[in-house]
Design a protein around this nucleic acid. Sequence first.
DNA 1: CACTCACTTAAACGATTAAACAATTATTTA
DNA 2: TAAATAATTGTTTAATCGTTTAAGTGAGTG
Lengths: 121, 121
Amino acid sequence: MENKKLPHDHGTHTLEIFKGTYENRSFEDAADIFSLVSDSTRLKIFCLLCHTEDCVINIAAAVQMSSPAVSHHLRVLKNARLISSRKAGKEVYYTVADTREAELLHAAVDKMMEIRGCDTL
Amino acid sequence: MENKKLPHDHGTHTLEIFKGTYENRSFEDAADIFSLVSDSTRLKIFCLLCHTEDCVINIAAAVQMSSPAVSHHLRVLKNARLISSRKAGKEVYYTVADTREAELLHAAVDKMMEIRGCDTL
DNA sequence: CACTCACTTAAACGATTAAACAATTATTTA
DNA sequence: TAAATAATTGTTTAATCGTTTAAGTGAGTG
């Protein structure tokens, strides 16, 4: 990006856009977060946990998947700090995490649904 | 979801969440849109085009990728109506599309960057 | 009319990812 | 302590995704 020039000069400031702004790492981090909800089952689980707290087998029943599959997705979401868990007896209860990323994603998903003409929860 | 019961009754309303709200198809559609920016190079291209309009080889130079690779990503983004294009002579100019989805994604990405402590454009 | 440049398309390869199954860990209860 | 249940982990298989290479289309130029 330094002193390079664009192949064509159309009077744009295209190269300047990336100067002194987001680092490459930032794009990767942001893309990683979006990839968490780029899978419909994971998005469904996240949305569910935005509105309730429940254990693995109940979540599995709600999204109609096996426990191991749900557990796997839950781990992915938890590693990204989008959901949190608490242990109570034999069960582990999951719900949305209290982070700004989770809050943003929840808002973004709701607005996306709204744009696409879906009823809101 | 109809008259099923959860394996465990913890007094939650987990199954109710999915009743009469988003359809399964809605989750898939929303996930598809998020998957568009779940790739860092595509996110980078989208962000770039949110702030400028330029031709393929200039975009390719800015993100340091080959023209075919960029062209491929541009088509994906355009099919999803996140970006638009206009032809001028030999060149094709791309920029962000004037849709609510694009607007939402742009806002979401900016906020994501802000949360993660990045400078804004 | 041929040449060059800009872009697109197609095919192939490598890498990532999800789902299904089996096995293991951990906790409660009898 | 043994049995039962909940959840996690690891593995395998299949599919998806992104990139690259090479060929092809089309517009401008000498």
